[in-house]
Write a protein that binds this DNA or RNA. Structure first.
Lengths: 326, 326
DNA sequence: TTGTAGGCGTTATCAA
DNA sequence: TTGATAACGCCTACAA
């Protein structure tokens, strides 16, 4: 691999001049510039980004720590994030924690070691003690002291779900989901606001028959047997709000297996987006987050970190995607 | 951030000694070692990986260039790859090309810029001219001269599909899929061997009624209208081999919409895995690739690159996952 | 407008 | 066993 020195030698100039040319900085004579560019092309010189990172102590990499890139919503978010950061010449490092504490911590160390420009953290464990809030960390969906937060408006989303079910005539409600989200230890998650918003709005509007079933989901899914058990336990429920689309879908399948008609007997609303599942059966009504908007918000936060600007929390709006299950 | 120098000063030793301690290399006195480790802990020293990469001219990063991490099969492969490389302390950089030529090329440049130890390339465009085969590039599913290849045994997979459909009594066959896989320009892809293996085995076993429908899929999906059009064009077909599960699913939906019974009237086999779709409706019979095995093979190839060992092509076996569509 | 030299934080070589 | 010191490739004062 040719270096800046090779270019300088061959062009008969100093390395500083070559540096100025490739960075388009400082004064460079027109002819000199042309000559340098020609040599660069001839010998196929590419600046060594590692060396650049060395002086800058930044490597233009953003690490995204998440439970699992296979999950539909996460995969969309990951995709949008990578797409938008590409425009600013940031690269995305994929860090699947598989919900393991030791992996989350290892990735945190990577931030310290690798000097990534920023780390986006979607934890499933209580690793607050491991976090140095002076580092460029952004939390997605988890509330961590002194760490800037990006999330969707889960509380309003819960309220919306309540309003929709009430307006459609439901009387007996069930929320089903994983409140803790932590596998090994509970984490303080934004996601629980879905339940809280749902419950509070129901009460505000005078509804009394509300069941909450909080089940520690493994891998963000509910086992069909468990779902059926819950449905059998609350057979008179006619309005269900599921913490995610994935859970919502399992519920619908089990409801139908139990001979219920969705949405006639029971209405179901999920959370995340719904559209992703359209190809595979029912169109699930869902409170939708926008992966694209989230990605943009994260990008803005990252750029603020880079510019040493203050990084403020961002809460993004959700919207109702009507399917055929309400 | 403290540096190796800070550790050396505080411990009253030279930086070389500290280096030996953190790398566990060379001789270090027991007491010296303890002292150094204590200081490292006290001041919270983390070796700067950028500087390490500087001397090594390697950064322990593998770039994975793929069309889109949202696709089910790719997302599984990505996940498995990240998981397995984590064990060897490699980080994975996600590079979505979105099937765009300029992005693929930009990611190739990243490799030249010395950022990554290896680059796994799943292209959708003819960028062979841009590839320097002396660089640590591994091609997945695409045949590129002088670039080591990792792929599943698509040819045998096609043969298997033929055998299964024949054995189940089918007489009139349809292959449907995207042979070129290139969006802008055709690429020489391993994937077309699915069709070739299928056709050749059918002929070997004396079958004459074989239709091939090669449709340039955008985004790896087939539009439902297009699928229906094809099915109407070949109404007497009773055995279908789809290039992917995603295409297979669309076909099943359209077949059912046309009043056909799957598998009674028409049998359908997909390719990739099948199980991923189990939750959302039919259990599609499928020639399954193993993302885990592929990831392991890729890991081995990467390690060989690192050790300057020869890197040989790897072709992995596929197996038939029986669902309820055959 | 250009070139020299020091520094970024490590590793590796070579004396001591 | 240790510790200077020279790379690694680039950027950036500072000088010329």
């Amino acid at each position: 691999m040719p270096t800046i020195k090779d270019v300088a030698n061959k062009a008969g100039v100093g390395i500083a001049t070559v540096s100025r040319v490739i960075n388009d900085s400082g004064y460079v004579g027109k002819k000199t510039k042309e000559k340098v560019l020609k040599v660069i092309d001839e010998i196929g010189y590419h600046p060594n980004e590692i060396a650049r990172s060395m002086t800058r102590q930044k490597n233009h990499i953003v690490a995204f720590v998440l439970p699992n890139n296979k999950h539909v919503f996460f995969s969309e978010l990951l995709y949008e994030l990578e797409q938008i950061l590409f425009e600013d010449d940031y690269k995305v490092m994929l860090c699947n924690s598989s919900e393991e504490t030791y992996k989350e911590i290892e990735f945190l160390n990577m931030l310290k070691n690798n000097r990534v420009d920023a780390l986006i953290l979607l934890t499933n464990n209580d690793i607050e003690d491991e976090i140095d809030s002076k580092l460029p960390i952004i939390s997605f969906d988890r509330i961590i002291e002194n760490v800037p937060l990006c999330t969707s408006d889960n509380y309003t989303g819960g309220q919306m779900a309540a309003d929709i079910l009430i307006d459609k005539g439901c009387e007996k409600f069930l929320f089903i989901g994983d409140d803790a989200q932590g596998v090994n230890t509970p984490v303080n998650t934004e996601v629980s606001k879905r339940r809280i918003g749902f419950n509070e709005r129901l009460k505000e509007r005078g509804k009394k028959q509300i069941y909450n079933f909080e089940y520690p989901l493994g891998n963000y899914l509910i086992q069909p047997e468990k779902a059926r058990e819950v449905l059998l336990k609350y057979p008179d429920v006619d309005g269900i709000f599921a913490i995610s689309d994935a859970v919502g879908f399992t519920l619908i399948k089990e409801l139908e297996a139990l001979g219920k008609n969705v949405p006639k007997d029971v209405k179901v609303i999920g959370f995340d987006g719904g559209s992703k599942f359209f190809d595979y059966g029912r169109k699930l009504s869902s409170i939708a987050q926008s992966p694209k908007k989230i990605a943009k918000a994260l990008r803005d936060m990252i750029l603020n970190f880079s510019d040493n600007q203050p990084v403020k929390d961002i809460v993004l709006p959700v919207k109702f995607n009507e399917g055929d299950t309400t």
